[in-house]
């Protein structure tokens, strides 16, 4: 048997619906059609009362989820693309994110954001929003990079008593496969040491983890041992795991697919620079997308975000410094 990242997301939702009658799924085309990406395929057939289509109203989708959550339900909201969550932004950050702190009443919602670039997707179907949501208090923000994490972190997200922004990467939907669904999992909040090394640490998350692995493989051929840390969740951010890795290697490259101003990579570097400066043998390096909207043409797109080539180039510079 083999299962894709996208199928794992469907399976996690099927499990959540089967295990807990408080769970429901609401979003555009998620009903009989099974979702724009088929992440809810057949779920409306299995759970007709608990999987249904919303109007194109991201603000009301999230607002409705908040109302249902504070009344005891555990909604999963599918945004058709992460980019459209901006229309529901107010309800996500101001209503869902603030509710528990203001009232003491729990607001368990999972908002799935099909995130990140794929060739030909262009400015409005490619965005990485994790840094924006991580900025706000009261939200948990996760960025699974593997099939196993897509499954286990989604199951865990639905079970958490807080709003979770689940950034699932579209680039990984089809071509990332695993043999089976995991039976045990690292909890949300723990980073994974994807690959051990001693010369340098690459910290990344989401689809960039796979560019980091490819970089490490390339550089292995040149005699370097690169450590790869997959953050898994960006909020909370597993600072201890990052610091432990930098303590072993003395060099840090942090790569993200998001835009360069602020965000996750800046946060990682800030933490290492402020709490682990003495661990560094060289100034840390950040790698992000270019500071323009995400381009449409695959040729433009291929250099807009970091790739294993640009990552390897940045890593060589850092290794030599």
């Amino acid at each position: 048997m083999s299962i894709t990242y996208l199928e794992a997301i469907r399976e996690a939702q099927a499990k959540a619906l089967a295990d807990d009658s408080r769970v429901f799924i609401y979003g555009q085309d998620v009903g009989p059609f099974g979702g724009a990406f088929k992440a809810t395929k057949n779920l409306a057939k299995e759970f007709p009362e608990r999987v249904w289509d919303s109007p194109i109203s991201e603000d009301a989708m999230v607002g409705m989820a908040v109302g249902a959550a504070i009344d005891g339900m555990r909604p999963i909201i599918e945004m058709q693309f992460a980019d459209f969550s901006t229309v529901g932004f107010n309800q996500i950050v101001n209503q869902a994110g603030a509710f528990y702190w203001r009232t003491g009443v729990r607001c368990p919602i999972t908002i799935r954001l099909p995130s990140g670039g794929t060739p030909g997707s262009g400015p409005f179907h490619s965005q990485c929003m994790e840094g924006v949501y991580a900025y706000y208090p009261g939200l948990v923000v996760v960025t699974p990079a593997t099939v196993e994490d897509a499954y286990s972190m989604l199951v865990e997200s639905v079970a958490l008593d807080d709003p979770v922004i689940f950034c699932e990467h579209k680039y990984l939907y089809y071509h990332l496969k695993a043999d089976a669904l995991p039976s045990e999992a690292l909890p949300i909040g723990k980073a994974r040491l994807t690959r051990a090394g001693r010369d340098m640490t690459i910290v990344s998350y989401g689809a960039m983890v796979h560019e980091a692995i490819a970089t490490a493989e390339t550089l292995q051929g040149e005699g370097w041992e690169i450590e790869v840390v997959d953050l898994r969740s960006v909020k909370p951010l597993d600072t201890d795991a990052v610091m432990a890795s930098v303590a072993r290697t003395g060099k840090l490259l942090c790569a993200g697919e998001a835009w360069p101003w602020g965000g996750v990579t800046a946060e990682v570097i800030t933490r290492v620079a402020t709490e682990g400066f003495a661990l560094l043998d060289a100034p840390p390096v950040r790698l992000n997308a270019k500071d323009t909207p995400v381009p449409y043409h695959p040729k433009l797109w291929s250099v807009h975000r970091p790739t294993s080539e640009t990552m390897a180039a940045a890593a060589r510079n850092l290794l030599r410094s």
């Binding site: 608990r50 989708m61 607002g63 249902a68 959550a69």
Partner: peptide
């Protein structure tokens, strides 16, 4: 909220879908 008395947030209009959500939860 436990008594069905929802605390408004400032952004006008934003409580309407929240009320909808409680009603959906009750119906479910």
């Amino acid at each position: 909220p436990k008594r069905g008395y929802l605390p408004m947030m400032s952004h006008l209009g934003s409580m309407i879908p929240v009320v909808n959500g409680v009603l959906v939860a009750r119906r479910m």
